[in-house]
Design a protein around this nucleic acid. Structure first.
Lengths: 229, 229
DNA sequence: AGTGTAAATATACACTGTATAGTAAAATCT
DNA sequence: AGATTTTACTATACAGTGTATATTTACACT
């Protein structure tokens, strides 16, 4: 038999491949991802996958985009779970959710912010939209703080004109976010990312279930620095 | 010929293997590291490497320790390049050097803080000493600030008693660093690490040669937060 | 001189991604 | 309805990987 009859085919193989990939990533970690292993589990041959993804990197890219979407969903949900004018509350909720998601899906976090796939270099232009969407929860919150005149401008970073060209993609995508908000949001993102990354990788001691050791402190002092009053 | 005569042998093969590995990591990136490729370059066979490293992971561990040593050297040098009582200066010098080293050796930085080797999980207890040494420049500086009574205790994190057990390894290794200094130093480390990581991976726009876009701002506002006056 | 050990080679196995060619089922067109 | 084209696979093969095992020989020591 060279091609199975329709009945025996997996209805949505593209989706099935991704799901199997996620299963293996969850179970064995992202580095162990293998097209052949996926094929074995789906009882097809490895080259069959090439009908749906031109190569392994394309599959990884698709997985990354999915992960960013899941991550972005949780970020937006966290933002919207707090009333719009509770700025500190929104920042904190986003921060807590950031760490929460990373702890719930450590392998996905690794896939997004580590480099677990050997030789994989993602095409940034394909990934950017889903990546930017996931960070937009934070960006929009900071912007709403600025719009309300509550952004502590004195303690906000500025970017010299000569470097502004590098920010064009961002300015374009976040056209409704003021530059100043963007810079502040980038700083906050970096702080959250740094502390979560070090904790997840085990470079820092675990912060406890609610992150109440060092993490909550960082969220609070960051909010205090950038928000007036 | 099964074993070459001594004259034709590479005098220090262990060292030569590591050097060749570094060469390949620098040229092709850490993920492309291959025992067989190293062997080819050294004109030996791949299994010969097993006389010096029990497996690939052991070689990677050795490389990581070397990288931490190089990184630690640059951190300590940066600290000692500024006079002992210039606290802000020392913090800044360490931070600048952190980013500098990452940009000079992006592949080594990747090796230390990313996860570029598929399936590699380093034995933390072997790596910890060289890792802790590299971070000791920052830790000792914060401690000297605290000892001088210039640490802004109000804005310093505290760790609840119930979590203190996780910090034992650290307390033990940094027995001459006060807990409070340790917590502050960890926060600073996380901030620096986060912003450098995102920049290096391309998630944030480049900060320019001197890091004067967002990076210097973060160093300064961090120093301002934790140091009195 | 003979023996034991150390350091390499030779060979082999199981695995990876992927290129190419062949084939049968399904879809389309006449 | 029958012929043709396209689709979705399988089969096979290649070059690469880490690593286990057995073999061989150079060297050190007694």
């Amino acid at each position: 038999m060279v091609r199975p009859t329709l009945k025996k085919q997996i209805s949505n193989l593209q989706e099935a491949i991704k799901e199997t990939a996620w299963g293996q990533i969850t179970e064995f970690g992202a580095p162990a991802l293998s097209l052949r292993a996926i094929a074995r589990e789906l009882k097809i041959t490895a080259p069959a996958i090439y009908n749906y993804f031109p190569d392994r990197d394309a599959l990884v890219t698709a997985l990354i985009i999915d992960a960013y979407t899941s991550f972005g969903d949780s970020q937006l949900e966290a933002r919207d779970s707090v009333s719009e004018n509770d700025y500190v509350g929104r920042l904190k909720a986003i921060g807590i959710s950031y760490r929460q998601w990373a702890h719930t899906y450590p392998q996905r976090y690794e896939l997004l912010f580590g480099t677990p796939i050997p030789g994989y270099a993602g095409p940034l232009e394909k990934i950017f939209p889903s990546s930017a969407r996931s960070i937009s929860a934070l960006f929009s919150t900071v912007e709403s703080i600025r719009a309300a005149g509550k952004l502590n401008v004195d303690s906000s970073p500025k970017v010299k004109d000569e470097y502004k060209s590098h920010y064009e993609v961002w300015e374009k995508y976040f056209s409704d976010v003021h530059s100043q908000s963007m810079y502040v949001a980038m700083m906050i993102w970096a702080r959250v990312h740094g502390i979560v990354s070090l904790e997840i990788k085990g470079n820092l001691p675990p912060f406890g279930k609610k992150g109440d050791t060092l993490y909550m402190f960082e969220l609070e002092s960051t909010a205090r620095q950038f928000i007036k009053e």
